[in-house]
Design a protein around this nucleic acid. Sequence first.
DNA 1: CTGAGGATCCTG
DNA 2: AGGATCCTCAGC
Length: 199
Amino acid sequence: MKITKKFFSRSALEVAPDLIGCVLMRRMEKGKILKGMIVETEAYLQADPACHAYKGITKRNEVMFGPAGFSYVYFIYGVHYCFNVVTGLEGQGEAVLIRAVDFSYEKKINENDDNDDNEGNSYDIRIAAGPGKLCKFLNIDKSLNAKPLFLPFNDISIVNNPKKNMADSLVQCPRIGIKLAKDYLWRWYLKGNKAVSRF
DNA sequence: CTGAGGATCCTG
DNA sequence: AGGATCCTCAGC
């Protein structure tokens, strides 16, 4: 089943685990397209002290209150960007943080090249093991804020993975790097995957 | 205008 | 355990 806007228009608590195993697709320079499997996510709800939307709408977080399926990119610690998908109903400030993506089986694709004998292009398993590393690898910055992530594919999209193994087991655990609401079990990752930021 | 703090990551 | 490094927001 295709990932549509409707897929994202549910609670972040449902979308976050469902995103594990889905494909993140990014258009790079020279028409190169990178595809990786999402292996780690975290949910942030408006009524959640750790959420950027907790204290209401601001210029930074306004996209979180908009329609679902759009990107929310923010800059943190003067060093890194983090990439989120807005979820839930319009007017609700919530999102899912994409924490890690597995690009180890990435195949290079040239748009103007029809032959599919691409060399298997294998990236380091931990090239995107963490939200900051993911954005660095995919060249994601504020210019990618508030972009639609459902199809049609333009700069960046989240799409279904036909090879997703529904039997894979997920680990549910506390979120990382937050001061408040440390006990909420709102982080999910693919059990046994080496691209996960922390085990 | 000012200052504090942050959904990280790398080094030692 | 600490530092990099700068944007954002609240407070005055």
